[in-house]
Design a protein around this nucleic acid. Structure first.
Lengths: 339, 339
DNA sequence: CTGTTAGCGCGTTCAA
DNA sequence: TTGAACGCGCTAACAG
């Protein structure tokens, strides 16, 4: 049975000095004599003293925990993102607790509430794909809990977010395809609730225009990201009299599902129809017929940046400036990477 | 600017009763009059009172945080495992903080120390593949921090762990192959530092014996799990005059790397050489030539069970019984699943 | 049934 | 340069 962990009180008693002296010595306070400072530090070392985190949290009214809510850890995009978040948070002595919404709005709401009650110092969110109202996030303002969105950004005014701008990547993708003589380039887009969906559409249209290709409505289909709906979308495309010769998919999973269906229909992948997508899954290396190229969105960096932004807000949480700050955002440029 | 969050003190003042009465009312203490209880609860509701977690943590000397250390979130096995851990932990109002060792022993050590200083209430660990000494774990006993290992179990005495027994799965795998008339079944095993490696070897030998096949040393090769070494191991196998007709790989990643090399060597996958592996990656669905079958190891369940075991220990941390408890372990049976 | 009190470990006044 | 004392929010032991 081991004794309790040492406290500053313990150290004070042994050294016959006051508790506050010990506290100050450990904090390198300027008004402490070198001699006492050394004595304190040495004893602390010997006893393996470690400040009691819970006491400090309590005293400071902070938990040093940030909550991260994202759809699904099993998507490698998000597991990279959370690595970035944690790596940055740890450098600032913050911990991260995770909540997976599994793309379910109700779950997302209850996670937000639970985290609020946990008194997390801030939250980082990538919204569920079917979340369309945002009161649960708006509520956090009342509690003065800083909030930064990343990647999956809701359509709310006045929010802080980090995202990856698709413009570059999409331009590069279209140019890449055009260089390969493709003229009929389709888009399998995501659910309308996501900002990412509108962004893809806008960039797609802009990029086509840029290459002097006319946009054709029938080459634009969409999926809710389930394999089923993706298959349906794909069927629409291959039913066209003039099939597309290239397809840009909302992300790699959509691309894989689309490819799966195409194969079933005996279409030669990247011969009859070429694929380009977003995200760059590592598994593509192992595939027979991966998309030709993918637009990299730098999840790790997004995570890092989002954590940085959030912790900056946490730091100034109670100052006036925090209240007056306008919404911040940071965007990273995407980039096409061929396989 | 919003006011401070309400406290029980605030409620007490407004109701002109004592703080402890409020506390008890909120905790449904039996000795509180129904009337006061109702009044308290209603006001608490109105004020949106939420107990201050940091104060409770402090008071109880607990953080309600468990630390989870695992090699890599990007392996789907571990992301499933952590989902299981979190789901269980959350039901008990515990939070989870994550540390990725990236299979690096030094990182693992520093994470353990950081978590110890964070005063986590317990730790769940899946050890890094090159960790061969275990002082950093042994140390936790001194601090009375409960520890449960899962999946990647170190070779230490007297530990608590959850693992998946491979016996069944391996038997099923060999039988499956034997039914398909395979006689030359090779094993690409993992690094010797892992208990899992020895277990696979033992089960492999036992299962072969069971099917009246003689073990042949030259069919047993190993890799450190990098693609490179796996390729080397694979080369050894296909250089044999009597090539194996079936290969059991340490896990799916090893299988994929082995398959990759085999393809490069123009070997027809699952024709000339059939593959069976462990883990059951979801991506196998998208592959042209996935392993024929995989031994499922139930990561989610392992995670859940490990969390359950840990929290049981946390609960009895300071009681005598906890000190006397012998090492616990729990094993789940693996199961072969064909693709 | 309810109130009073003490104290968890620490940082931070205010005094000396 | 140091110490004494207080309080953060909550629980629990003790006292009515």
């Amino acid at each position: 049975m081991d004794k309790k962990l040492p406290t500053i009180k313990e150290i004070a008693k042994r050294l016959n000095i006051s508790i506050s002296t010990v506290s100050r010595a450990l904090h390198d306070h300027h008004s402490i004599g070198l001699r006492t400072k050394m004595r304190v530090r040495q004893l602390a070392e010997e006893l393996n003293y470690e400040p009691n985190k819970t006491a400090i949290n309590f005293k400071q009214g902070k938990t040093f925990i940030i909550g991260v809510i994202l759809p699904n850890l099993s998507e490698s995009f998000f597991s990279s993102a959370i690595s970035g978040i944690e790596d940055f948070a740890n450098t600032q002595n913050y911990n991260v607790v995770l909540g997976q919404s599994h793309d379910d709005k109700e779950r997302e709401i209850s996670i937000v509430k639970a985290m609020k009650n946990q008194r997390v110092d801030g939250m980082l969110v990538s919204v569920a794909k079917n979340t369309t109202s945002y009161e649960h996030f708006a509520m956090l303002r009342k509690y003065n809990i800083p909030l930064v969105f990343f990647d999956r950004i809701p359509d709310m005014a006045n929010i802080n977010y980090v995202a990856c701008k698709l413009e570059n990547g999409m331009q590069q993708a279209i140019q890449y395809l055009v260089r390969k003589k493709h003229k009929h380039i389709a888009l399998i887009n995501g659910p309308e609730t996501l900002v990412a969906t509108r962004e893809r559409l806008d960039c797609y249209i802009a990029a086509l225009k840029n290459s002097n290709i006319e946009t054709d409505e029938k080459y634009i289909v969409s999926t809710d990201l389930t394999a089923e709906k993706t298959h349906e979308a794909m069927k629409k495309l291959i039913a066209l009299e003039q099939k597309p010769t290239a397809i840009i998919a909302f992300n790699d999973y959509v691309a894989l599902d689309a490819i799966q269906l195409a194969k079933k229909e005996k279409i030669k992948i990247n011969k009859e129809i070429s694929f380009v997508s977003f995200a760059n899954l590592p598994i593509c290396n192992y595939m027979e017929n991966p998309p030709l190229a993918s637009v990299e969105q730098f999840p790790y960096q997004q995570g890092q940046k989002a954590a940085e932004m959030l912790l900056k807000m946490v730091g100034t949480r109670n100052s006036v400036s925090a209240q007056e700050t306008v919404a911040m955002n940071y965007t990273i440029d995407s980039k096409l990477e061929t396989h």
